[in-house]
Nucleic acid binder design. Structure first.
Length: 576
DNA sequence: GCCGTTTTCGGCCCGACTGTTTTCAGTCG
């Protein structure tokens, strides 16, 4: 999406300025603008058209003009001109851990390097340590950094990082000197992708904990290690940063280590205005240095005049103002979820029987579960013929006659065909409680075509929600070209919900898009797209995304009671 | 380059670790 392009453009601009040794605050302004654009919860074209770009925090007159220029022409002259004046290799070089703008400048200017392979060759030939400010140790460090880039080029998906981190935490908990241990960083904020895992411990013996951490079986390589802070690469190839503090510092440290960076900056600026100083050790009076708070997160926020802010929304996107005004949203929680809407049985491409899925859903305390196998055209997933779907309906009805405490909703994940028609006729669809519309074909169609397919599906009165609205698969497939603002508007108009698909490689809609959808008046469905029993657990990821999107129970269909839900679905079917 | 319960100009968060240095710049988060 276009706001991601702008985010990258401004991040590049920040790199360029840093490389040229320009005013660091100007660099920061571009970085902050980039972060804001990446998570923009409104359509940037609309904001531009309505002259409201400067409403985005960190966007002033100048950056608004550059955004406008980019939207109008596809480029920003000033940035392009600056790019001409620096060696193109700097964008490559600063990707390498240990190489920042200063080192990149020296390497790029003295050796005419144009690729990471050349950088590696130069390091092996000991060309780097002939440069000023670089000795052999630094050269070796760059080689290690290069190896890291090669291994972990892609950020991990939230689901993968979460399970690896939880396993590691279980092992660390067994260490003798750890009093308390918690996940922090982007993982705690439930970002869609995770670069490294941050872990915070409280201990009276930090040095001992650091020794145990680097000496454990999980440690493949120590990247940096000091008395209170250590970074390692685990045997899974994941970078983990461990920070140790005293119990009375834990809350302040947890705030600091959870971030986001911009959220922290806002907190610290606020502290200064209040005559206080905030760091990872606590909140202090600026004048006397006397400690005001630090043991618990809530104490720190409270002393700053703020309600405690849930980690998922600590992104400098309005949460501080809301916390000061006591208007933070009551974010959706696991206990609000009454059911799952997107589940495949072994009749199509799932692994489990109807009964197994029903039992698992009941054990989770769900009130309802929609059974949604694939439709006939999706041969690769054994989509059900009309006859097979009719038989499936009978099985669901039969299962419901014996089930207690859980209702199975009959449903289907129905392909939206290349021409926009649904893959079952209405006489089938009308028999289903829940109809999912999905794009599984024609991914390369132009934006207008795909958007119209989805809009025409939404106009079908039997379609309850649109699954994975962008089709993106992390690390495998780019999103198809779709006009999301038009889809959001269509969703509102036709009373069709939109899915946050919690499957780890999908996470689609992403959080900023979901926030935009709800702002446009659409309802959201959280679903796991389960193909195997344990996939039901992915609801955790969907919840994380929903919380990042500031969603409250009223925004999400899963929070409705069964009768409320069916009434909501019926409402659309009854529309003129 | 942004921004204002102190400001339309003059500020702008804070600290750990590393390597190259003999007191600190660079990098990272």
């Amino acid at each position: 999406m276009i706001h991601h392009e702008l985010a990258e453009l401004f991040d590049n601009m920040a790199d360029l300025l840093e490389f040229r040794n320009e005013n660091p605050f100007r660099v920061r302004a571009y970085r902050r603008a980039s972060a804001q654009l990446a998570q923009l919860s409104e359509d940037v074209r609309t904001l531009d058209a309505e002259n409201r770009l400067t409403e985005i925090p960190g966007i002033g007159q100048d950056l608004a003009r550059k955004i406008h220029e980019y939207l109008a022409t596809g480029t920003v002259v000033e940035i392009e001109r600056l790019k001409q004046q620096v060696p193109p290799s700097i964008f490559l070089l600063i990707q390498v851990p240990g190489i920042g703008p200063k080192t990149a400048a020296i390497i790029a200017e003295r050796l005419k390097i144009t690729s990471l392979a050349q950088l590696e060759a130069a390091a092996h030939d000991h060309q780097l340590c002939k440069l000023p400010g670089i000795q052999e140790v630094k050269e070796q460090k760059i080689l290690k950094g290069l190896a890291l880039v090669r291994q972990g080029q892609h950020r991990r998906t939230l689901g993968a990082a979460l399970s690896l981190a939880q396993r590691l935490i279980e092992q660390l908990k067994a260490l003798p000197d750890i009093r308390r241990i918690e996940i922090a960083g982007s993982l705690r904020r439930m970002k869609e992708t995770i670069g490294d895992v941050d872990v915070l411990v409280s201990t009276a013996k930090p040095a001992a904990v650091m020794r145990q951490f680097t000496g454990g079986a999980w440690c493949r390589q120590v990247l940096a290690s000091g008395p209170t802070k250590t970074s390692i690469l685990t045997t899974d190839g994941m970078q983990v940063d461990l920070r140790a503090v005293k119990p009375e510092e834990f809350g302040a440290a947890w705030v600091y280590l959870t971030g986001s960076k911009d959220h922290n900056v806002r907190l610290r600026e606020r502290a200064i205005r209040l005559g206080l100083k905030l760091n990872e050790y606590g909140l202090f009076r600026a004048a006397s240095g006397r400690r005001v708070a630090g043991r618990e997160e809530a104490d720190v926020y409270k002393a700053l005049g703020l309600d405690w802010i849930p980690p998922e929304i600590r992104e400098d996107s309005g949460e501080l103002d809301a916390a000061a005004d006591h208007t933070l949203p009551r974010l959706i929680e696991a206990k609000d979820i009454r059911g799952d809407f997107h589940v495949h049985t072994n009749q199509s491409d799932g692994s489990n029987t109807l009964q197994e899925l029903a039992d698992a859903a009941r054990r989770r305390g769900y009130e309802y579960l929609a059974i949604t196998d694939h439709s006939q055209s999706l041969k690769i997933a054994h989509g059900l013929s009309e006859a097979a779907m009719t038989a499936q309906l009978a099985r669901i009805a039969e299962a419901n006659s014996t089930l207690r405490g859980l209702t199975l909703l009959s449903g289907a994940e129905v392909d939206i065909l290349k021409d926009g028609r649904m893959d079952y006729p209405d006489r089938i669809l009308k028999q289903l409680d829940v109809v999912i519309g999905s794009v599984h074909s024609g991914f390369n169609q132009p934006e207008a075509t795909i958007t119209n397919r989805i809009l025409s599906a939404m106009r079908n009165r039997y379609v309850t929600f649109i699954a994975h609205p962008t089709g993106r698969l992390h690390g495998q497939r780019e999103p198809y070209a779709v006009n999301l603002p038009a889809v959001f508007e269509g969703a509102r108009e036709t009373q069709t919900a939109l899915e946050i698909n919690a499957s780890p490689t999908r996470l689609d809609l992403e959080a900023s898009a979901a926030r935009q959808a709800v702002a446009a008046g659409a309802r959201i469905v959280l679903s796991t797209d389960t193909h195997r029993l344990d996939h039901l657990d992915h609801m955790t990821l969907g919840l994380g995304l929903a919380r990042r999107a500031w969603l409250e129970p009223k925004d999400v269909l899963n929070c409705l009671r069964r009768d409320e839900l069916l009434a909501w679905i019926q409402q659309k079917r009854n529309r003129p």
